[in-house]
Design a protein around this nucleic acid. Sequence first.
RNA 1: GGAAAGGUGCAAGAGUGGUUGAAUUGGCACGCCUGGAAAGCGUGUGUGCCGGCAACGGUACCGCGGGUUCGAAUCCCGCCCUUUCCGCCA
Length: 436
Amino acid sequence: MLDPKLLRDTPEVVIASQRARGADESLISAWQSADSNWRNLNTKYDSLRAEQKNLSKSIGPLQGKLKSGDNSVQGELDALMQKASAMADELNQIAAARDTAEAETVRIMSSFANIVDTAAPIGGEEDFKVIETVGKPRDFKAEGFTPKDHIELGEILGAIDIERGAKVSGSRFYYLTGVGALLEMALVRMAMEFATKAGFTAVIPPSLVRPQAMEGTGFLGQAAVDVYHLSADDLYLVGTSEVPLAAYHMDEILDGRDLPLRYAGFSPCFRREAGSHGKDTKGIIRVHWFDKVELFSFCDPKDAASEHEKFLAFEKEFLSALELPFRVLDIATGDLGMSAIRKFDCEAWIPTQDTYREVTSTSNCTTFQSRRLRIRSKVSDSAEYVATLNGTLMASTRTIVAILENHQQADGSVKIPKALVPHLGMEVLTPVAKRI
RNA sequence: GGAAAGGUGCAAGAGUGGUUGAAUUGGCACGCCUGGAAAGCGUGUGUGCCGGCAACGGUACCGCGGGUUCGAAUCCCGCCCUUUCCGCCA
């Protein structure tokens, strides 16, 4: 949700943002007229209601007099009651009109996405800017062998069972088995330790949430088709622990001295992938479920940009520790999610696809989510909405893909990056003799 | 799943349908007192919205949503949540 003051006082800012996103600019004036309509009715209601309250107050004493036998006030009382009654009717009508007007302002308001950062590149999905490239893809030709893809490696190592995933749950499901399962746990452990050292509180949040939490984080807009919904219970399966982490402090006023509040959540992530038929149909790059360690921060809006930089730095450090070649993208305005004003993706090199693929992503949502979730902080007298930021630290499936493919050796074994060895307890993953 | 009790401000905890944003106590903040502190005394202590440069004024909020009424924290209906007991269960 945007700050209504922006639309009232500096609509040009909103117009520019809508334009950069390729969104509808006419919504601004539509909202403004709905807003002034609502404000008129609201003022009208308030003043009439004040009058009514005054009137009501004088009824009590008169009734008291009547009870004690003073019949002289009967006429005055009747007139008063009649007037108050008429006023109540009028008030009901105004209230109804006011509520309709308010619903209209909310309806339009909720279709606005956050105001894009002017530093973000303008354009669509293809217009990202490559900020940085870290590490160098291996030259397998020079090493004298053709790299295997993660599907084949997963089979050889007994680490990933895609066939049985499909048998049991359908396409885009998989089993991690043997060293595959251990690899995920080691990565999770490494990520959690990393996050804890960086001042994040480790959290295992619920992955089923109520509509409010889903809506508050902006996932029930255009993204709604990608969300699993359990209609029998009206609960949603989260697509990221960003949702339960953001909603953690819903309806709270935080102590400003505690900011930034940083959490690292580990949870499964469920995505319907409704609009991606035909994309990444093989392997575990794009699946309906995976596990992820997600970073989340509630901070002072003034610090949001620098917190965002820190998040990106954490992600880069983590990928570097895994010795993966990757590049960093500054995502273009038209490709930002609803809540984000700016987004950085890290893409790891995937040798068999001869390209970089997204493994982490961090967004600065400023006060967009906190407005919807009513999360504020108080320093002195006034309570202000906090900024929220999120970022992937470790998405299990894609990280596993990147590790297997980048660190494979000619014989199908995979060398484990140094930083991960203590968590996994193995230096090399070796092919299994027989697939069970 | 069955039964019962309950949801009030930062916390504990009152509250008769009328002047209650809400007693009281505690916490916290400020002030007085003191060499300093404790104790004591005094004052203050929510959020949203609308109007206003501001002081401030108005309005809404006592789990949530409806209803009755001139007037609802207080009465009625629905829902949610919490606690306890029983059953089931990782």
